[in-house]
Computed example of a mutant assay.
Amino acid sequence: MRPFRYERPATAARAVAAAGGEAHFLAGGTTMVDLMKLDVMRPERLLDITQLEDGRYDFIDWDGKSLRIGALTAMATLADDDEVRRRVPMLSDALWLAASPQIRKAARIGGNVLQRTRCAYFRDTSYAQCNKREPGSGCAALDGGVTRGHAVLGTSSACIATYPGDFAQSLIALDAVVEILGKDGPRAVRFAELHRQPHSRPDIETTLEEGDLIVAFSIPDADFPRSRYLKVRDRESYAYALASTAGALRMDGDVVADIRIALGGVATVPWRAREAEEMLKGSSISEDGLERAAEAAFAGASTTEDNAYKVDLGKRTMVRTFLELARMEG
């Protein structure tokens, strides 16, 4: 790890003013410190934001069916919140399945949605070819690499690295909004607009501007008791998704009144399956109908020999999620 300067701004405004260039925010540090040890990230200054304004950004607030969550809320705090578990279990599921208990206590949800890929060619600097780490250098994964864990949706000729997070799938499914404090003041963007697909510039991963600080997430309609996050992985704990589905369902009798589908482990960014949602709205839930919707969700998949299995696995994960939700009360 290279030398760096540690600072602790007292307010969000001061943190934003100090950020930019080689100065990076630090909260739980579960991704940043990891990548610093690997020499992938080399910040000259770290701005510890965990004590900003005495916990002003650490909260879980319900207002009717809307939910607002401070970005410095610990993963464990949100996962264990009784109201969240009762009213929108998908959020709690995604956090419970995301990491070890120690990491859930340290990591904050603002940093969680910005975690970087687990692609071995990005994280190992002995590989010179990585467009995400060194723009224009090429992609070792595509140039004869092992791609079993890589993405099949949202890929480009420059990068097929998978977005690794779980919580983000629930946020995109719930039409969350990201509240940001930037150098020009506060603003809000749809969570669906936060992450960028790689295209020709995989190194530009989000639409955040220099110095932007995520301060909260708001979900206008978070009351989805019939929801869940299903994650398929190589082992039962502390492993990243090979395929996952964040699913939420509202029924009007036997007919789908509202449905939300987001896919994880298979895409370069948090992935909303809107075509599949449209196919299922207004119909009854059946295995045949879900299989047709899953086909639509993966119609644009681009695979390698190693990761082609993810298409079938992703479809089966999506179908299973909604067959189980259909059997739930709510």
Rank of each mutant, 00 (worst) to 15 (best):
Q51D: 13
L52S: 08
L52V: 14
L52H: 12
L52C: 08
E53W: 06
R56V: 12
R56K: 15
R56D: 11
Y57E: 07
Y57K: 10
D58A: 12
D58Q: 11
F59C: 10
I60H: 13
D61R: 15
D61A: 14
D61W: 06
W62V: 15
D63P: 02
G64S: 14
K65L: 08
K65V: 13
S66T: 10
L67A: 09
L67I: 12
I69N: 06
I69V: 15
G70Q: 09
A71S: 15
A71K: 03
L72V: 09
L72F: 09
A74I: 05
M75T: 15
A76T: 03
T77L: 00
T77N: 07
T77H: 07
T77D: 13
L78H: 02
L78G: 04
A79H: 05
D81E: 09
D82H: 11
D82W: 07
V84T: 09
R86H: 09
R86F: 03
R87E: 08
V88P: 02
V88E: 03
P89Y: 03
M90Y: 11
M90W: 08
L91D: 11
D93S: 09
D93H: 12
A94V: 02
A94E: 05
L95T: 06
W96V: 12
L97N: 09
S100G: 12
P101L: 13
P101N: 11
R104A: 08
K105N: 15
K105A: 14
G110Y: 03
G111C: 07
N112P: 05
N112S: 12
V113S: 01
V113N: 02
L114R: 00
R116S: 11
R116F: 01
R116K: 13
R118H: 13
R118N: 06
R118G: 00
R118F: 01
C119T: 01
Y121K: 14
Y121P: 08
Y121A: 12
F122L: 08
F122Q: 02
R123I: 04
R123D: 04
R123S: 12
D124C: 09
T125G: 08
S126Q: 14
S126L: 14
Y127A: 03
A128Q: 14
K132P: 06
R133Q: 09
P135Q: 02
G136H: 10
G136T: 09
S137I: 11
G138W: 10
C139L: 09
A140G: 07
A141I: 08
A141Q: 04
L142N: 03
G144H: 07
G144K: 07
G144W: 13
G145K: 03
V146F: 11
T147D: 01
R148H: 14
R148D: 13
G149Y: 10
A151C: 12
V152R: 00
L153W: 01
L153V: 02
T155N: 10
T155V: 15
S156Q: 10
A158Y: 13
C159P: 04
I160P: 00
A161W: 01
Y163C: 00
P164S: 08
P164T: 07
P164C: 10
G165F: 08
G165W: 02
G165P: 06
D166M: 09
D166E: 15
F167P: 00
F167T: 04
A168T: 13
A168M: 11
Q169P: 01
Q169L: 04
S170F: 12
L171F: 08
I172F: 05
L174S: 04
D175G: 06
D175H: 05
